[in-house]
């Protein structure tokens, strides 16, 4: 079963990507990604630039409304995601519990939609 694991991180975690804590921060994520990959559970994923790098567009009456920043201002922001293929939600939850983002942020797990029905 395929799941997306969405990593929501607080600003303090994004801040660790540079500066004195960067080494430990990245080492944690590298090790975790490596473990996911070698277990065969990971089928994709990416880290994301911080929310201030986001550009959000809405189309209102055909007119582009663009604002700088993420779509919603909240304490935690999407910092990256993994795509998993695991036997069950339980296994996905186990991986989420090991995620370096879990102690400081939140890990959202959502099943991917099944492939669309074939037209008959």
């Amino acid at each position: 079963m395929k799941f997306a694991m969405l990593i929501h991180e607080p600003a303090s975690e994004f801040a660790k990507r540079q500066g004195p804590e960067a080494g430990a921060y990245w080492a944690g994520w590298m090790a975790y990604s490596e473990a996911l990959r070698t277990s065969g559970a990971m089928v994709g994923g990416a880290g994301l630039e911080p929310p201030d790098a986001a550009t959000t567009l809405r189309l209102a009456d055909g007119k582009r409304q663009i604002h700088d920043g993420p779509f919603a201002d909240s304490k935690e922001q999407l910092g990256g995601f993994y795509l998993l293929d695991v036997p069950s939600l339980d296994v996905a939850l186990d991986w989420a519990a090991r995620c370096p983002g879990a102690p400081t942020g939140s890990i959202e797990i959502r099943p991917l939609l099944p492939p669309p029905p074939q037209a008959t």
Binding site: P87, S88, L89, D90
Partner: peptide, 18 residues
């Protein structure tokens, strides 16, 4: 139905917690 909760019997190491 949607969250991916399994109806399978849990693996032995998970049984006591479930």
């Amino acid at each position: 139905r949607t969250a991916g909760i399994s109806f399978d019997f849990p693996e032995p190491q998970r049984l006591s917690q479930r």
